[in-house]
Design a protein around this nucleic acid. Structure first.
Lengths: 222, 222
DNA sequence: AAAAATTAATAGTAATACTATTATATTTGT
DNA sequence: ACAAATATAATAGTATTACTATTAATTTTT
């Protein structure tokens, strides 16, 4: 499964100019992922990014209206990529239980680099999703941005896995709650394991997060 | 249960001067809760707060080093209050299942105003916890701040409810994960219900969030 | 090759998040 | 009671941030 020549298509309302359309745009994406990781989103600025890629702050504004929109772009890229991975890895499975297990693994496990998308470091992007993505929607403009479709791809992922849940247990009342609880929960647990271990029970090499959420789901469903 | 003359004691490393010690300090707390709610944490500034209470920006710096520390203070107040409520409402219960149910209700249900703490609006403070509190620990300085004890009260609440879980099922492997999943999950579901309803299954007056998390816990435990 | 369009860089601005200094009020010791 | 000590508040600043308007340079199109 290498060199598939794929490109994740991103809603054009999220950027001013498509960063995939130029070398500078790709530099912006690649380096912003590294810098948001190393500095944290609050300390990351377009000025610092410009310096890092040998370009000017104002040139970055030609691609993204502000750093919030760059974060939204990265989050959308991540969920589009995750959605593609879920489809790819469940397509050949023909029972709902296996599909759910596979989806949980993909959503909850440590992310590995995907060689199909060369200028994106998926490992670091996953860390951004864990540490920074809630800042995107915990925002005073969330309703307006939701109307504009900024969170559509995330909702699509939740819907896809909810459909597996309903395939497995058609009468289950709360499929979306269950799926969003797993996704957000797993991100929290990874963050807690690294920074606030008293809030979790993660142990080295035990895959406790996957076991915990898999048990949670199949004990809850019929 | 009225007029108990209680005061929530807050770790003195969190403030420069104790806001409960003066009228100005209490104004700062009361109005910051309102303003963080109405403006969102990013748009809230000490300048605007100063204007709102007819005082100067620099006077607020005599109480809190910066707005991040004010948020940490509010979060600590909330969790101290919640911990007190959990103790109060489970003390007379003598079986673990009832204690867990009561704790979930307190952690997950809509918050009501508590007349014992007059200058704090607990309803609005709960909204801040839901919308803004993850910004406190999703911060580049989380490890340092954790060492300083900024998140101790939250960890104490998780520990207290984890102990109920272990009382009910002494061999359960993941009590902290389960409790932090419920707390953070319930906050997410309330936020989603208001702003991103496709991610949840909340219906008016159905108490779905409490039912969902109560089922989750008792299906997971023996 | 000239005109049109795109892109980049310079130089600004308003707002933010503080800080240093000074002025004013309050408390305390004798 | 009253000066000295201490606490508090206000003024006026600064460095940084998050942009924007304008101009310069380059590339593309005809």
């Amino acid at each position: 499964m290498e060199n598939l020549n794929l490109q994740i298509k991103i809603n054009s309302t999220l950027f001013v100019k498509d960063p995939e359309s130029s070398a500078l745009g790709r530099e912006i994406i690649a380096h912003s992922i590294e810098m948001i990781n190393s500095l944290g989103f609050e300390s990351f600025t377009f000025k610092k990014l410009g310096d890092a890629i040998g370009s000017n702050e104002s040139s970055i504004y030609r691609y993204f209206a502000n750093k919030h929109m760059l974060l939204i772009y990265l989050i959308n890229w991540y969920w589009s990529w995750m959605d593609y991975k879920i489809v790819l890895h469940t397509l050949t499975l023909n029972n709902a239980q296996d599909k759910i297990k596979r989806a949980i693994e993909l959503l909850v496990a440590d992310v590995k680099q995907d060689s199909n998308f060369s200028f994106i470091n998926e490992v670091l992007l996953n860390r951004i999703i864990i540490s920074e993505s809630s800042k995107a929607y915990h925002n005073i403009d969330v309703d307006l941005e939701n109307e504009k479709g900024f969170y559509m791809v995330y909702k699509q992922v939740v819907q896809r896995v909810s459909d597996f849940i309903l395939e497995y247990d058609p009468h289950y009342e709360f499929p979306h709650m269950l799926v969003s609880t797993i996704i957000e929960g797993a991100h929290h647990q990874r963050y807690f394991a690294e920074h606030l271990p008293a809030l979790t029970d993660v142990e080295e090499g035990q895959n406790n997060i996957i076991r915990f959420y898999t048990n949670l789901v199949f004990n809850t469903l019929k």
